[in-house]
Every structure is written in C-alpha cells, then in structure tokens.
Design a protein around this nucleic acid. Structure first.
Lengths: 233, 233
DNA sequence: TTTTGTTGTTTGTTATAACAAACATATTCA
DNA sequence: TGAATATGTTTGTTATAACAAACAACAAAA
C-alpha cells in the first residue's frame, strides 16, 4: 500500500493561476489582451469565482495590469518600463550571482555544467523554445544557490513581468549567441569563487539582452514583435 | 462647474486591502495571528467576498503567509528571513539611492530637508509612532526620486514584509539615534550627487537596524517583542 | 450630417447559500 | 480510566444571482 500517493486536491483557483502564469511566461498572450472573467471561466469550465482569485493574484504580483473598469489586461511593455525592469533585475540577479559565488555547491555546479552543454546543443539544433526553457533553468539554478529564498522569489516576479516580451525573442538567434559568453563566464566565476566577476557577467548578460530588445521599440516606445520575413512590404 | 470633483467609488475590496495593509505596516497584528475571512468581514461590515479578494492580494504579495487549510496568517519573521530581507533591501534600496543621487530634484530635496528636521524634533519629543511615519516618508521620498516606479514598488513590498517586526522597534530609542547619522549623510550625499556615498549610507542604515533587530531573536531564531520593564522577573 | 438620447449587452462587484475538510468537544464502549 | 467514535462548529471553496457602471449600437431630432 506504500505505492499509493497522497491525495491532495488543489483548489481550482490555484490551477487557474498556474495555467495563466505559464501562458504569460511563455508569452502566449499578446500584450494589450483584456482577460474577462467570464470568458476565462468558460475556457476553464469553472465559475468565475476561482478565475477571479487567480486574476487578483496575478494583478497583485504586477504580472497583469488593471486597466479601466478594473479589467485585467496583459501589459504592454514600453521601452521605459523595460529599462526600469533591467535596473531592478541587475540589482537583484547581480546580487544573487555574487552570493552564489560565495556559497558554491557541488551538486548545483554539476547541474549548471550540464545545462550549459545542453544549451549549446540546443542552439546548434536551432530549437529555440527548448533553449529558452533551459536558459531559464540555468539562471535560476544560480539564483537558488544564493540560499536567499526571498531573493529568488522576487527575481521570479521580475521574469514574469518580462514574460509578454519574451516571445519577441523567440524568432531571433542573435541574442542567444551574444549571451552565450556571459553564461560560461559567469559559471566559471562562480566556480572560482569570484563574486564580483559573477555579478559583472550576469549584469552584462541582462543589460545586453535588454539593449537588444530596446532596439525593437517604435517611436512611441512601444515594444513590437519583429515582422516575419515573409510579410509584404 | 469647474469646482466639482470627479466621482469615483472605490471597490470594497480595495478599501479592505488598504486597511489591512496599513495595519500590517504599522505592526498592529501580532505575528502568528490567523486572519479568518468571516471575522474580518464582520469587522469591516461587508460580506466575505471583498475580504477574500483583499487577503488573496496580500498573500500574493508575500505579505501574508498561507498556513494549513489555506488560512492567512501574519508571518513570523525568523532571524534567517530577516537576514534574507536585509540582503534584498540593501540591493534594492541602495540602488535606488544611487539613482536618486544622479537625478536630484529641487522639490524632493526640499521635502527631504523638512522631513529630516521634523524627524529630529520628533525624536526629541519621544513620539515614536509619528517618527516612524516620517521615517518611512523620508526613505520613500529618496526612492521616488530614482524615477524607477518598479523599483519603488518592489521596495514597498519588502517594507510590508518587515511590517510585523516594526512594532518591535517602537518601544526602543536606540536604533533611531543610531540611524540618524546615516539619514543626514545620505541626504548630503544625494545633494552632492555622490551616488556611491548615498548607496553606502542607505545600506549602512538598513544593515545596522537589522543587526539590532537580530539581537532580539531567541535561540530558535524567532523574533520576539522585548519584554516591557514592568514585567515580573 | 451631426448630435443627442435610448436601449441592450458586457463586465466587474457583492452578497448569499451550499459544500467539504479540519478541528474541537462530547459520548460511548472496553 | 482510556481510547475510539460520533457530533457540532469553524473555515476556506465554489457556484449563483442580483446589481451597477460602462460601452456599443441604433434611432430620433436639430
């Protein structure tokens, strides 16, 4: 009887929250989309009550904006907001990397090397979706090594806010190749116990990616998806 | 007709959230207190629906912990968690102070000087509650000057998490006098446009306060209110 | 043609009832 | 007396209905 798993029924609003969160993080919602409670409830097959809880939670986390009429909308990310997010991310993730370098752990370092190898092969295979997934794991493996849960939690929040823009990166290969250097350098610095270098590399990684994204902004400072090459001129 | 003000009715859950938030920030809830929806609804004179929204939001912000049975409880702050919070606060608030020094604004600087003077007089008058209020305004006037809203928002979140412990400080005078130096020094650095010095002073202010608070922890790492002098031995 | 008023729909807000899990208390049986 | 069971209470969860504000579409009047 020991093979039976513990029965735990997660609340509906928790499931709804998880689904919305993943969708946002993967950039599956276009910025500016208004999420209505009743339509979400219909797609989930529940009443609006659990959906309301999930949306309330996401708004509280700053992942969803509340527009007029308290409607929850997928936020547009202006160039200015991206710059602000970059500042916060550099402060938090740089500090996390520095802390990680002062607390190196064998198991984590091993996972990081494996992730790095996998990322290189995924770049070669041009499978970007999977790359981004491992890229995320690589960063957070470092941050987790810092041993400061609140730090990791706050960083996660910032990544969620970047979610809607992440899909912009997917069809691009340039950023990945540029960021590659910083990843290996950061890991090397952590192994060497050089906190300052680790912080420098992570900050450079974030800054360069943001600088690239900022180039995609139009005159109004609004970030837009790059047009696919097949689009008519 | 120009004297008429805009009519705006704020939702009940927003009012409930504001009240709970203020109470938490002022440390009016003892750590470990379980907040039940129905009791809160009764004190607010509403149904449990708006209260539920407010509590959900606070839990999402990390201000309230969710205990077993998804109950919302005012979190205990262990010494370890206080140390973690200090790391995050130093990274964020230090950065904000540095940014503020690079974007000095006359109006804000004037308000800061006024706040500093008021704080000194409040210390002399031994009115601690009012001092803490102005102390808060002083810090956030600096952070707002950074011009990075997301940074300010995140810092606010960290202060909310420290809320339950804040009341521990109220009966103490030592911390205030110790921290006073750093406040004037930080403001002087900002006026001089010395970002590095401003960051250093703010970090020192946070660190010293945390170090003092950490001394109040018992063997289990649990922070406790200092016993009033009239307590029996 | 433009503006104004009306109507119907959409949508977030709030209250309420039913529900289930957990806990505390009382009761019963050995 | 002590353990097991039964019962009642508390509490978060969910669905549903009523409500009001906002928006859109259409009709009527200048």
């Amino acid at each position: 009887m020991t093979s039976l798993k513990r029965i735990e029924r997660e609340p509906l609003w928790d499931l709804a929250h998880a689904q919305l969160r993943d969708a946002l993080l993967a950039g599956r919602f276009a910025p500016g989309t208004v999420l209505t409670l009743r339509s979400l409830a219909e797609t989930f097959g529940t009443s609006i009550t659990p959906v309301r809880d999930a949306v309330t939670r996401l708004v509280a986390q700053g992942v969803l904006q509340q527009g007029p009429r308290n409607a929850a909308i997928v936020p547009h990310l202006t160039r200015s907001e991206l710059a602000d997010l970059t500042i916060v991310r550099c402060a938090l993730e740089g500090r996390a990397a520095r802390e990680a370098a002062s607390r190196p752990q064998a198991a984590s370092l091993e996972r990081l090397h494996a992730l790095l190898a996998k990322m290189q092969s995924l770049i070669a295979a041009r499978s970007l979706e999977s790359y981004l997934e491992h890229h995320r794991k690589f960063h957070f493996e470092i941050y987790a090594m810092s041993g400061v849960p609140i730090l990791v939690e706050t960083i996660e929040n910032m990544w969620l806010r970047c979610g809607p823009v992440l899909s912009f990166v997917i069809p691009e290969y340039v950023v990945l190749l540029k960021g590659w250097d910083h990843h290996t350098a950061a890991l090397k610095a952590i192994v060497a116990g050089d906190g300052a270098a680790a912080e420098r590399e992570i900050v450079a990684d974030i800054t360069e990616a943001a600088q690239y994204l900022s180039g995609l902004a139009d005159a109004g400072g609004q970030l837009r998806r790059p047009m696919p090459e097949t689009a008519a001129g």
